[in-house]
Structure formats: structure tokens, C-alpha cells
Amino acid sequence: MNTRPIPVPPEGARLQWHLDQPFRLKHLVIAILIFALLILTGHRTEMDRMVIMTTQAVGNLVGLNDESQVVRGLSKVADSMWPPQLATSEDIGRMNDFNPDDLPWFARVETRETTTQRINEETLQLESATEITEVLYDPTGYVKTVFAKMIETLEIALWGTILAVSLSIPLAWFAASNYSPNRVTYTLARGFISLLRSVPELIVALFLVLAYGFGPIAGVLALGLHAAGFLGKFYAEDIENADKQPQEALEAIGAGKIKTVLYAVMPQVLPQYVAYTAYILDRNLRMATVVGLVGAGGIGQELKGRFDMYDYGHVMTILIAIFLFVFVLDQLSARIRARMI
């Protein structure tokens, strides 16, 4: 039995209470360092200039000061971009498939008079010559061109996705540790997947344009290769994480690896595969508008061409088309998703 008295603090002893501030010098130093780093990088990325210029712009808009580089630049662009270019006129003399009885809708033939000044070689007098050319004026001609380019963009995205899926299925097989034939194939497949994933589409497209020339081939390949890396990784991980029990059941009757994956793994992972593939299609539709900037086909290529020729009216039409395209796409995918859930 423990009969010793319970110890009590001696009379007059004071307990040591401490409640320090939550921050100490160490924290202050860290905060100063982070602040200094932000100042440095902010200056390197000209964030200070950005603040000044934006302030000027706002001041200019509300009438406080009368000079702003930003507003001037923007209004210059806006002036030249408005109105968007909708029509086309083509010199009939240069068209070799012109058929006056079969004009496009709303199109009409117009005559244009062009006056040129030139020196008459005999009299050495400056005289003006008037030349009359016939042009085919189509009020919606450029809208049609842009529409056709939009369709091409869609097709690039679609084929990029098809290519990605068909590449990533064998890739996923070799990159799934439980089905890859051996360590070497596994490591190679994983390495290849990382490589594909690490290079952005736009950079791949840049090089593919050198290899395949301007046009949709480079676009499809760029989108497909990058997405194949993404899909290969996720497909493979789903195979690895799939429930082992049904796989064991088919292994036990000697069905073989491929058939086991088909009948014991695929049913489990298919809903996820559909979700990944839908994501890739969505992403490719957006990226397909961009890869054209480096010449890989689609609407982006048209945009780049017009931009370089200072045809800002055309550029405006293209931008509106891209906006409408992405907007409709978002609505569609939201509706499809709502229906699937």
C-alpha cells in the first residue's frame, strides 16, 4: 500500500507560466526574405511598370490625365479590327473555275475601276489608265472560309484524340507493372510516357511542321503524341489498381494475359477510360485552335497568316469564331455531362 503523502509544492513557490508571442525573430527574417524575393522577381517581370501603366490607363479613361500608352495601343488595335471582315471579293480573271450561272448564295459579280498612273513612253507624259476588272463579291465569303477552317480544327482535334487513344492502349499495356512482359519493357514504356507528357503540344508542333510541312498533319501528330502520354499513364495506373480477384479467376483457367485484361480488367476500368478520353477530346479541341499558330493547320494557321498581313478585320472575325466555338463546346459538354451523371 502506498501510504506516502502526495507531494505538494512548498508554500510560496510560484509556478512558471509562459505564453509567448506566436512569432519570433526567425519568422521576421523569413518574412523579410520572402518579401525581398517578391520585390526582386516582381521587378524582373516588370510588375511595377504594369501597375504604373494600368493606373495611367484608368486615369486616362476617367479623364484625369490625357496620355496613356496602353489606351492608345488598344484603341489603335480596336480601330483597325472593327468591323470584322465578312466578305470576300475575288478577281474573276484569276479564277479558273468561275461559272456565272452557278454563283455562291448572295454572291454577285461587280465591276471595279482601278485607275493607275503611268508614264507614256512616247510622250513622256504622265497619263492615267483606267482598268475595269470584274470581281466576284461574296458578302459572307470570309465567314465561309473561317467556318471551313473551324471544321478543319475540329477534325484535327478528333484525329489527335483517335491517334492518342490508339497509341496509348499498347503503351498502357507495357507501362502496367502487372502485365508488362519484363522490367525493361516497363521502364521503357514509363520513360516514353514521361517524355511524351513533358513536351507541350505547341513545341512538338513547331518541330513537326519542319518535318511534315505546314498543315494539319503536324497538328494531329502534336496533339496525339502529347495526349498519348497522358492517357497511357492513366490507363496503365487503372490497370494496376484494378481489383485482382476477377483477374485471378481467369488466370486460374489459363485464359492468358490479354484475354484476362479484356474480360476481368476492362469492365472495371471502362467508365474511367471514357472520362479520361472525354477530357482529352475537350482539351484537344481547345489546343487545336492554338497549334495552327506555328503552322500546324486549322483556324490558328489562318489567324497567324492574317495577323502577319495586318488584316485585322479578318483577325476579328476569327477571334469571334473561336469564342463562339469554345462557348458552344462548353454548353455541349456541360449538357452531356449532366446527362451522364
Binding site: 483457367i253 474480360y263 469492365p267 472495371q268
Partner: peptide
């Protein structure tokens, strides 16, 4: 040699 399993081991989604 067929096998029948305690946890049935069916592909449940199929």
C-alpha cells in the same frame, strides 16, 4: 481444372 472462389471473383461491372 476449374476454380470456384470464396469471393466469387466475378467481373462485377460486366
Amino acid at each position: 481444372v476449374a476454380m470456384i472462389h470464396q469471393h466469387f471473383n466475378l467481373a462485377t461491372r460486366a
